[in-house]
Amino acid sequence: MAELCLGLATSHLAHIVNARDAGDSAKVAAFDAGYARLAAALREAAPDACLIVSAEHVNKFFIDNMPAFCMGLFESFSGPVESKARDVGYPWREVPSDPGLARYLIERGLDEGVDWAVSEFWEVDHGMMVPLHKLDPEGRVPMIPVFVNCASAPMPSTRRCFAVGRWLAEAIADWPGSRRVGIVATGGLSHSVGTLDQGRIDVAFDEWFLDRLCAGDGEALAGLGDAEMMEAGSSTGEVRSWIVLAGAFAGRRAERVFYAPIEGFDTGCAQAVYR
């Protein structure tokens, strides 16, 4: 029996590493402090492997073949892919993965109705690499990337994301051996990218979302509709990754680590942890 030992959630925007001056300095410092707390939690939990669940920003996955969910199956992956086009302010690197656990989850899912798309080569974007840069820059913890389509409708419903999270917890618990597994969810909270309301942050939505998460009320999060998330911003649907995490820790309370609407970052920035 493996143990689901830790759940981390964080916004993943790159401003925290390459446009820090755009935000209020006190809020940016608090966001950094939140990252430090998450990194400490990761070190203390010492998982043998983690899943890192994130949106992707149409760098790899495109509408000619858009999966709802995809899992990486390889010894390692690399990124951030954006650094091939411009200086992103943090280094390209290779991240170790865990193909044994990934294959187990993929094969079990394909047998039980969680039909993962599979990627055997993946240059991931800032959605994963910024949090990894802040949480585990030396790549000590093997990470299995998990994509959730948050970029192009039709997208997986929040109900489905929650169910996939619940399924992940059950499958991880059945993983043979005494291994410790964590989940890192990234994205959100409210923000818009590439739309006319870019810069608007929906504090009320963010507070409601964090309140429900920290109350252990994942069922409420699993009731969010596409329209409600879109109303809170065109990219707010990235909270799907948080809802996968809430499903994995269903019924358990998360600890709120940080929240602030950071205007220059155009995002409601948040962090939480399940221990």
């Binding site: 446009a19 149409v58 970029a151 990218v193 590439g194 739309t195 006319l196 309301d197 870019q198 990219s235």
Partner: peptide
């Protein structure tokens, strides 16, 4: 572009490719 169904993430990348500062999209 947006009205015709261009994905906002792609529109934003095109915006930056066009030399505009990211924070000025709106």
């Amino acid at each position: 572009l947006l009205d015709r169904g261009a994905l906002p993430n792609l529109v934003f990348k095109y915006f930056m490719l066009s030399g505009h500062p990211p924070g000025k999209f709106a």
